[in-house]
């Protein structure tokens, strides 16, 4: 990451920390289970973004993937589950998994890094989706692709690509794809919104 990008991310994280502090202050005055849950959710998301930042920043341009035999199906399910219980909790956006029959049962990848990349893509999609996010996977010829589609206004209609305001998600996804000798792209998706895609060797 460039020093400018790093400064931007740190600044952004500081703001989020401020927001969390405000939530906790409100909670201290008027404790309710809903407010506590919201503060907890905020804290979880902030932690997640800090971990992404440390992953990209600490790798110094050479993120290393620890490949293991993993199930892409389980990966998609766990990303969707995490989004439901964290990012999308209390919001009117649904997330569905569509694993094609061609998606291999097993592939070599770093589950932790791919989880980060997909979480970041879902995080981005949630910023634009109206009602739906679809996580999908398919395979062909020694590769498999994982996509995140949203039904938002789409790239041409002002989807401020790449990813989030600071570009952290984008840095992360590109680094994760490279570490797997794969590619990452962003384009128009079938739901009318954007499509994030990672294509990786099995």
């Amino acid at each position: 990451m460039s020093p400018e990008a790093t400064a931007l991310v740190v600044h952004d994280l500081k703001n989020e920390l401020g927001a969390l502090e405000a939530s906790l202050a409100r909670l201290a005055c008027a404790p309710t289970p809903t407010a506590a849950e919201e503060a907890h959710r905020q804290c979880g998301l902030l932690r997640q973004r800090l971990v992404w930042f440390l992953t990209v920043h600490g790798a110094d341009g050479r993120l290393q993937a620890h490949l293991d035999d993993e199930s892409p199906h389980e990966l998609l399910d766990s990303v969707a589950q995490r989004a439901r219980s964290g990012l999308l909790a209390g919001r009117d956006i649904g997330i569905a998994v569509q694993a094609s029959a061609s998606l291999p049962a097993v592939a070599m990848f770093d589950r932790r890094l791919l989880s980060f990349a997909l979480d970041a893509a879902v995080h981005n999609a949630a910023g634009f989706a109206r009602q739906r996010i679809v996580l999908a996977g398919q395979g062909s010829d020694g590769t498999f692709s994982l996509t995140v589609d949203d039904d938002g206004p789409g790239l041409l209609a002002g989807h401020p690509a790449p990813q989030d305001s600071t570009g952290l998600g984008s840095w992360l996804c590109r680094a994760v794809a490279q570490a797997h000798r794969g590619t990452m792209s962003l384009g128009a998706g079938p739901l009318g919104g954007a499509r994030f895609e990672m294509r990786l060797p099995t």
């Binding site: 035999d69 199930s71 199906h73 389980e74 049962a105 097993v106 070599m108």
Partner: peptide, 11 residues
């Protein structure tokens, strides 16, 4: 079974 454990089994 060629399932999720196939690579582990091959190894």
């Amino acid at each position: 079974r060629r399932d999720r454990w196939a690579l582990h089994a091959l190894q």
